[in-house]
């Protein structure tokens, strides 16, 4: 019959979840690496991955098939990571956040007058079209390397804010720190990453 769409055209099969038994093989390594970037501890990261799969198992009836299975799992893991931070912060008192990377403020970026050192630290003009850079694996390797240079807590709050897009209130609550401390941590993390990226990606040798 002309004009009438065939069933396969009219109805798009929603994505289905695969057998939970295959999740560990399909997504285990990927989720583990994501978790390691945040919690930086093998055991904790494994726990986060396991908690994520268990939560997903319970919630699989609510999977609407609008995102891929992997992004659905990543979304669940975001909450599990925040839960993990909440737990560890209760168990062990947070180190004085102000002491974290305090030396980073006196790293010689600015002269005594508080200005950039023009031939050493002043930000370079990054290429006009850095978007192409994002397609290169090398850029992400460098960024990951730079993130690894930060003190763990600083890297954690940075990832929660800039990668997971949590609000500062959510991060303060999970990490048990004041917003003033959080802002300082984020400022130092961004400053260091920018500098590191410039040195390694845009070709200024570190001062």
């Amino acid at each position: 019959m002309p004009g009438r769409p065939r069933p396969s055209e009219a109805y798009v099969e929603p994505r289905r979840l695969s057998d939970p038994q295959t999740w560990a093989d399909q997504h285990g390594d990927y989720l583990f690496r994501c978790a390691m970037l945040r919690v930086r501890d093998r055991e904790l990261a494994e726990e986060v991955v396991q908690d994520t799969f268990l939560a997903a198992l319970q919630a699989r009836g609510r999977y609407a098939g609008q995102s891929s299975e992997r992004s659905w799992l990543v979304g669940i893991m975001k909450h599990k990571i925040v839960d993990q931070f909440r737990k560890t912060c209760r168990e062990q008192p947070v180190d004085d956040p102000d002491a974290l990377g305090r030396e980073m403020d006196n790293d010689g970026t600015f002269d005594e007058g508080g200005h950039w050192k023009l031939d050493q630290t002043a930000p370079l003009d990054w290429p006009d079209n850095p978007a192409g850079i994002l397609e290169r694996k090398q850029f992400w390797d460098i960024l990951k390397h730079c993130l690894g240079e930060l003190p763990p807590k600083m890297a954690q709050v940075f990832s929660l804010r800039e990668v997971d897009e949590l609000s500062t209130e959510e991060i303060c609550e999970a990490m048990q720190i004041s917003s003033a401390n959080l802002w300082v941590l984020l400022h130092r993390a961004r400053k260091h990453l920018r500098q590191c990226l410039e040195a390694k990606q845009f070709g200024r040798s570190p001062a």
Partner: peptide, 17 residues
């Protein structure tokens, strides 16, 4: 590109599960 960072070179000490 939240996924690119995790897809980048895995560190030698944590290649996967």
């Amino acid at each position: 590109h939240p996924d690119r960072l995790a897809g980048a070179e895995p560190p030698a000490d944590s290649p996967g599960l």
